[in-house]
Simulated assay, not measured.
Amino acid sequence: MIFKVFYQKNFTEVPVRENTSAMFVEAESEREVRKKLADKGINIEFIQLVSEDLLAFEKSKEDFKVESL
């Protein structure tokens, strides 16, 4: 399964919507995503399971990539 992770790059700062980034991670569960990202020092805001329709849309973008962790 592929998850879309919304996060802030700096864990120590207050989250600001304009600074939110997103990445795609392949994992079996949300818990596994959190384990894989635990040592990255990022502030995870939300993790979303990506549906087939959303995945097809995201793949059409030229900057789409799934993080290998």
Results as ranks from 00 to 15, higher is better:
residue 40 K to T: 03
residue 38 A to S: 15
residue 14 V to A: 07
residue 28 E to A: 13
residue 18 E to G: 13
residue 31 R to E: 10
residue 59 K to I: 02
residue 2 I to V: 15
residue 42 I to D: 06
residue 68 S to H: 11
residue 27 A to G: 07
residue 32 E to Y: 04
residue 27 A to M: 08
residue 51 S to W: 02
residue 9 K to Q: 10
residue 60 S to M: 10
residue 12 T to I: 11
residue 19 N to C: 05
residue 12 T to S: 12
residue 62 E to W: 07
residue 51 S to D: 14
residue 5 V to P: 02
residue 45 E to M: 13
residue 44 I to R: 07
residue 46 F to I: 08
residue 37 L to F: 10
residue 35 K to N: 15
residue 37 L to C: 08
residue 45 E to F: 02
residue 24 F to T: 03
residue 47 I to K: 02
residue 13 E to R: 13
residue 68 S to L: 04
residue 43 N to R: 14
residue 37 L to I: 10
residue 28 E to I: 04
residue 31 R to S: 10
residue 66 V to S: 04
residue 66 V to C: 06
residue 58 E to A: 14
residue 1 M to N: 08
residue 51 S to L: 05
residue 15 P to V: 00
residue 59 K to W: 02
residue 49 L to C: 02
residue 17 R to I: 13
residue 60 S to F: 07
residue 14 V to Y: 11
residue 31 R to N: 06
residue 11 F to C: 03
residue 32 E to T: 13
residue 45 E to S: 12
residue 16 V to I: 11
residue 14 V to R: 11
residue 54 L to D: 15
residue 41 G to H: 07
residue 39 D to C: 03
residue 50 V to D: 02
residue 68 S to C: 04
residue 64 F to D: 10
residue 29 S to F: 08
residue 12 T to K: 12
residue 5 V to D: 01
residue 40 K to V: 01
residue 58 E to N: 07
residue 41 G to A: 10
residue 57 F to N: 07
residue 31 R to G: 02
residue 6 F to S: 09
residue 12 T to G: 01
residue 46 F to H: 12
residue 51 S to P: 05
residue 7 Y to M: 04
residue 61 K to A: 13
